[in-house]
C-alpha cells in the first residue's frame, strides 16, 4: 500500500510537469517531458556459488545445483523522463527519474538426487536515474524514432529475498539490509524508441545483492550470497511524450489539452 501511494504521487507529479510542458510551443519540440510506464523483464538466474550453502530440506541438508541459467522475472517501472534534443534533430539526451521494481530468480535442485527443488527470488525497489543519449539517422522528433545508449543508476530502497521450496508450502521472505545489499547499482543501457514504444536492454554490472557480504556466526565466516552477480533486464515501456507531438498524433490527448486551456474540443 505504501508503495502504491508512492507510485501514485509520482505519477501525479509527472502529469503536472508534463501538462505544463504542453503549453510550450516550439520550445517543447526540443525540450519536453515524458511519462514512462512499463514492464521490465529479468532473464538472469544468478547462481549462489557458495558450495557450503545447502538446501535445508525436510530430510536433511543437501547440496544444490542451479537448474537452468535463465529464469524470467517480471518487474515494472514508472517515472518521468526529460528529453533535451539538439537543434540538429538527430540527437539528444534523455534523463529523468523512475521508480523501478525489478528482480531475479533462480531455481535450484538437489545435486545428488532429484528429490527437491527451490526457487529463490530477489526483488528490489529502486529509484532510478537514466542518462541516455538519443540519436537517429532522421528527425528523431517527427516519428519519435531513435536509438538510446547510456547508463541507468539505481538507488535501491529495499531488497527482499524470497524462497519457495517444493517440500514445504510455506514461503520464506526476508528483507535484506545493511551489508547484504549494494545501495547503488548501475546498468548499461542500449535500446530504441519508436513512437510511444520504448524497448531497451539493461545489463546490470553490479547487482543489488552484495555477493561479497560476510557474516560471522559462531566464530565462522559465512558468505551467504557468494557468486550472485548482475544480469540482463529488458525494459518495455510506454514512453508518452508530454508535448505537442502527442496531441498531434492522438485526438484524446488533444481534447484533454483543449479542455485544460479552457477551449472547445470542436
Amino acid at each position: 500500500m505504501k508503495h502504491l501511494t508512492l507510485i501514485l504521487l509520482f505519477c501525479l507529479g509527472c502529469v503536472a510537469a508534463a501538462s505544463a510542458q504542453m503549453e510550450e510551443g516550439s520550445k517543447g519540440e526540443y525540450r519536453y517531458w515524458g511519462i514512462i510506464i512499463g514492464l521490465n523483464h529479468g532473464f538472469s538466474a544468478p547462481e549462489n556459488t557458495n558450495e557450503n550453502v545447502m538446501l535445508h530440506t525436510a530430510k536433511g541438508d543437501m547440496y544444490k545445483k542451479r537448474a537452468g541459467a535463465f529464469n524470467y522475472t517480471p518487474g515494472y517501472q514508472i517515472g518521468a523522463v526529460y528529453n533535451l534534443d539538439f537543434k540538429n534533430n538527430k540527437s539528444g539526451i534523455q534523463t529523468g527519474l523512475e521508480f523501478t521494481n525489478y528482480g531475479c530468480r533462480t531455481k535450484y535442485e538437489t545435486r545428488d538426487n532429484n528429490l527437491y527443488d527451490m526457487k529463490e527470488t530477489f526483488r528490489a525497489m529502486a529509484v532510478s536515474v537514466p542518462l541516455l543519449l538519443k540519436f537517429g539517422p532522421n528527425d528523431i522528433y517527427r516519428n519519435m524514432s531513435y536509438i538510446t545508449v547510456g547508463v541507468r543508476a539505481h538507488y535501491n530502497i529495499s531488497v527482499m529475498q524470497g524462497q519457495k521450496a517444493s517440500w514445504n508450502t510455506q514461503k520464506y521472505g526476508k528483507k535484506l539490509t545493511g551489508d547484504e545489499i549494494n545501495q547503488f547499482s548501475v546498468c548499461g543501457v542500449l535500446g530504441f524508441n519508436v513512437g510511444m514504444l520504448s524497448i531497451n536492454a539493461n545489463y546490470m554490472f553490479m547487482n543489488f545483492i552484495n555477493d561479497e557480504c560476510q557474516i560471522v556466526e559462531n566464530g565462522m565466516t559465512k558468505k551467504p550470497f557468494e557468486g550472485i552477480k548482475g544480469g540482463l533486464y529488458i525494459y518495455t515501456s510506454l514512453n508518452i511524450p508530454m508535448c505537442r507531438w502527442l496531441t498531434v498524433h492522438n485526438w484524446q490527448a488533444e481534447k484533454i489539452r483543449r479542455k485544460l486551456h479552457g477551449g472547445s474540443t470542436f
Partner: peptide, 30 residues
C-alpha cells in the same frame, strides 16, 4: 510482479565443512 513478505524460515543453510567433520548423506539425500 509479486510481493515478498517477511515470513517463515529460510530453506537454505550454510554449513561449514571442515576437514574433519562433514554432513553425512542419507535416504538419497542427507
Amino acid at each position: 510482479t509479486g510481493c515478498i513478505k517477511e515470513d517463515g524460515e529460510p530453506y537454505t543453510i550454510e554449513r561449514q565443512i571442515d576437514k574433519e567433520r562433514t554432513i553425512v548423506s542419507s535416504l538419497s539425500g542427507y
